[in-house]
C-alpha cells in the first residue's frame, strides 16, 4: 500500500485473526472496523505478528492514528480523541467525503 500522509482518512480492517488460530495482534479490539485519521508516520518496525512466533518479521510502517473517542463508545466529550499506533497493513484508505 502507498504511504499514508498525515490527515488521510483511514479505516482499521475489521479482521479477527485470533478467531482463526494462534495470533499476536497489536491492533486493539475496540478499533477494528473504526475510522480514523493519520497523524504521523512513526517509522518502520518488525511485524509483531511474526516476531511473537519467531518467524522472519519484515519491517512494516507504523502510523499514529487519531480516532474520535465519543464515536467509538457512544459517550464522552466532543473533540476528545484516541491516538493509537497502528501498523500499515491494518489500515485501508477511505475516500474523502
Amino acid at each position: 500500500m502507498a504511504e499514508l500522509a498525515p490527515g488521510r482518512l483511514v479505516q482499521v480492517r475489521s479482521d479477527w485473526p485470533e478467531a482463526r488460530g494462534p495470533a499476536h495482534i497489536r491492533t486493539p479490539h475496540y478499533l477494528r472496523g473504526r475510522r480514523g485519521r493519520i497523524v504521523r508516520r512513526l517509522g518502520e518496525f518488525p511485524n509483531p505478528e511474526d516476531l511473537a512466533f519467531a518467524r522472519p518479521a519484515p519491517k512494516l510502517p507504523l502510523y499514529h492514528v487519531a480516532f474520535d473517542q465519543a464515536a467509538i463508545w457512544g459517550e464522552g466529550a466532543t473533540g476528545d480523541e484516541l491516538l493509537v499506533e497502528i501498523f500499515g497493513h491494518w489500515l485501508q484508505e477511505v475516500p474523502a467525503q
Partner: peptide, 28 residues
C-alpha cells in the same frame, strides 16, 4: 472509554475547553 471520569477520581478536573487525547501505547 471514560478518561474524564477517571481523571476526576485523581482530583484532576479538566476545563471543558481542554480537549483530551488518550494515547493507547500499542506498539513499538
Amino acid at each position: 472509554r471514560d478518561p474524564r471520569g477517571l481523571l476526576a477520581e485523581w482530583g484532576t478536573v479538566l476545563p471543558e475547553n481542554v480537549r483530551m487525547r488518550v494515547v493507547d501505547s500499542t506498539a513499538d
